[in-house]
Design a protein around this nucleic acid. Structure first.
Lengths: 235, 235
DNA sequence: ACCTTCAATCTGACTAGACAACTAGCCTTA
DNA sequence: TAAGGCTAGTTGTCTAGTCAGATTGAAGGT
């Protein structure tokens, strides 16, 4: 009937209650039978929602006791996750200086990793990201020109690239592969970031894919070491 | 009855068949009803095993068609995962030079992050890791001295620290928090790694925890940028 | 005051189904 | 030959339970 299954409804309800603070860390959630009767579903359906919340470390289950909202150690700053720059930094005072925005013939590395044909064009974005007004990272993004032709001139300084891609072209990024390394700042980037030439930067190369496996974005970023990546590792 | 639930048995059976190559990437697994009758369980139990394999990207499910072994793109090199140095590098020709091994009074940073009391001792390991004979990383590990007293003199050059901890003291690490940044090589590390002083290194700080949340290890590592980290990001 | 016992409650594991949505291949028909 | 329809098989969602194992708090006894 409904296009969205019940366990996703329950999942969303609980998650937004937790995010909004209606359920604080350490609080016990309603028991599985309680939720089942509240939503008029069977207990297995409730468990499907709770399984998902547990896998994302949003809740912790204790057999015999109950299900509790997890401590937000590094849970809410969701790393290991594909998000916008602002989400990754965990801050909101993010601004952008666009250094280049336009369509050019894709160089070889871009062609290969985005699966473009020879002489095909690509949109290039070169941005400097500022956190609380001071420069934190340089980001260079490459996208297939055919994917979003207007993007080469679109207003992007204000919002997030990923949100623009989704809202205006329906392109939803699903996952990404990234390699993290370190590199010495060249003259240009050193100038933009306000660091001495040759000083170390975090260098990330990322390829983001749509859910059907199509590569959508190749991005390089050079970040000042004062803004490290946080990650949680599982066994 | 059995201490190990059926869905874990099925999960393990399928996973080992895939790892052993009996089921190759792209192959279709037996259907859920087939597996259910083979194991003499209900379909929901089979699904519990398949859910886990799917979450780990070991298999892909296609509604109406079947469940297939996933392509091993970056699935088998499991990053975002807590593993030994050899596992992280994805290579086996790893050797170790021990630069320091012993128990010392824990400095403040170590005390705080491992939750030790003042004047409590900690075991310090300082190792240079070599891949195919050439130096790749410097690792400095701190562990509570009380956890594994003999560790300060244990033979560690050959094997993995994590395996030693588990096999000799039953300490099993469950998860870790890590911050990834970049730093310029100081004189000592530059010498060990064979790079110019001041050249950029990947700098990782990691705290590993047991399943009850006790911090077990604080580790710093400085890695040459030729050995980047690989990670897969989810939405 | 302290300990033990016990019953209620909770999550973990599992059953034996049902119907829906989708896929892929076969078969008929124009 | 090509298009369309049918059908068997597969995964997705969900039900209405059962029993086991763990926890918690209250009642009761010493």
């Amino acid at each position: 009937m409904s296009p969205v299954p019940m366990y996703e409804v329950i999942y969303g309800d609980l998650l937004s209650q937790i995010k909004a603070g209606a359920l604080a860390p350490g609080d016990r959630l309603p028991s599985e039978p309680t939720l089942a009767s509240q939503y008029g579903v069977s207990r297995m359906t409730v468990r499907q929602a709770l399984d998902q919340l547990e896998a994302e470390h949003v809740v912790v289950r204790r057999r015999g006791s109950g299900t509790y909202v997890a401590q937000p150690s590094s849970t809410y700053r969701r790393m290991n996750r594909l998000g916008s720059f602002g989400e990754e930094m965990g801050v909101s005072e993010v601004s952008t200086e666009m250094k280049f925005q336009g369509a050019v013939v894709a160089p070889d590395e871009v062609r290969t990793r985005l699966g473009l044909k020879p002489r095909q064009k690509a949109t290039r974005l070169l941005r400097v990201r500022l956190v609380s007004g001071s420069p934190a990272a340089v980001q260079e993004s490459w996208l297939p020109y055919s994917l979003a032709p207007q993007l080469a001139r679109e207003e992007l300084v204000g919002g997030s690239l990923y949100r623009t891609l989704f809202e205006r072209w329906g392109v939803k990024l699903k996952w990404a592969e990234q390699t993290i390394s370190a590199v010495a700042a060249d003259a240009e980037r050193a100038g933009w970031l306000g660091v001495p030439q040759g000083s170390p930067l975090i260098w990330i190369t990322r390829v983001a894919f749509a859910d059907d496996g199509t590569p959508i974005e190749l991005a390089h970023s050079w970040t000042r070491p004062e803004f490290p990546l946080l990650a949680r590792l599982e066994t």
